[in-house]
Design a protein around this nucleic acid. Structure first.
Lengths: 202, 202
DNA sequence: GTCTATATTGCGATAGAC
DNA sequence: GTCTATCGCAATATAGAC
């Protein structure tokens, strides 16, 4: 066995278990058994259960470091928004656990929320707000839009579909095959709204 | 002291603590101390910690029983949607804990998810889907809309604003004073979309 | 590095006094 | 109904053998 083998086994097993049941829902006894590693290795490699959790949080949120790169600076604001939503959907597919940590921290924050989660999300929102403001100043978006409210609608759409999976799988197919259609439908609603302009009656 | 006094004190204290830190984040020792009641009262009144949690869940989700009544059957579909969003915002104001239980159960489901949470949410989504389908068949909404995707955008907007409060309070004022403005902004985006029809450039 | 064994603390539940 | 005391067990962490 290589030196890092057990460390990585603990990390990946813990990522799965903490995502499913939260920090307090998993004991290091169970975790070490599931990973096939001695319980003492958790303190040895990470310094304890909470430190292991914080290592996972940092890893999970590191993908936001690349958000700036996926948005083409030369695109129109609407294309940037499409890039963001497509990237968000892909992110949830590539790492199905991130959303669990994100919403778990939003709902029941641990002491790591303010140091790891909040700054990362704050940065992302800031970038999106600037895109909306750019769209407004270019005259492409309606000038009466509240940029932050608009950004939250965007983020809400892209995340809630995955967040609500357990409660909505009876109503709609959540397979990745439908992701491009989802992107189209969401961009469609976001850009045009749902009223039929031809027969607008209110 | 009346018979129901201690029972209610346990219930309200537990509702607060479980909302903040989850079922596994609170011990019945701490809970009983916070409520000023003996620890044995939890078993006496509820049958144990998990049974107390399930009683809270049922109480929290009972407000969905009245959802049908807040939607005026004679209104146009768009007005019904406005009623739903206004009711959802009010619901989060009247009971700031419901969203915690809702997202906590979606993210880290307990054994009560399938019996209490899922049926309630399923019912609500079914009703909203029917409203969108009605709007489409009346020609008021675009016929190419996917009703479920559309409903999820609606629910996403109305819930994500509150869910993300901890991460977004630096960007926007979450005071109830702004709730009517929020409703207006969200309905505005949902109905018209964000593109400026006058200078539409894509 | 990895394990076993154990120290220590805290957990949920309940018996039994009042 | 309510409390105190306690049972049995599981929690995290770590000392010490290898």
């Amino acid at each position: 066995m290589l030196k890092k083998d057990y460390r990585n086994r603990l990390l990946s097993t813990a990522t799965l278990l903490f995502a499913e049941r939260g920090l307090n829902g998993v004991s290091i006894r169970e975790l070490s058994k599931a990973a096939g590693v001695s319980i003492s290795m958790i303190s040895y490699y990470f310094g304890g259960k909470e430190a292991l959790y914080s290592a996972i949080l940092k890893e999970q949120f590191s993908c936001f470091d690349y958000m700036e790169q996926i948005i083409n600076k030369d695109s129109a604001p609407l294309a940037k928004i499409r890039d963001y939503i497509r990237w968000t959907i892909k992110r949830h597919r590539d790492n199905p656990y991130l959303l669990r940590y994100y919403t778990s921290e939003l709902t029941n924050p641990t002491k790591y929320f303010s140091t790891i989660v909040q700054p990362t999300i704050g940065n992302a929102i800031q970038m999106l707000v600037e895109i909306v403001e750019e769209g407004i100043s270019l005259g492409e978006f309606r000038e009466e839009l509240n940029p932050v409210d608009t950004v939250l609608v965007m983020a809400a759409m892209a995340n809630y579909y995955f967040l609500s999976t357990h409660a909505t799988e009876k109503f709609i197919n959540h397979s990745p095959d439908r992701d491009e259609e989802l992107l189209t439908n969401y961009m469609d609603i976001f850009t045009k709204g749902i009223v039929n302009q031809q027969e607008k009656s209110n």
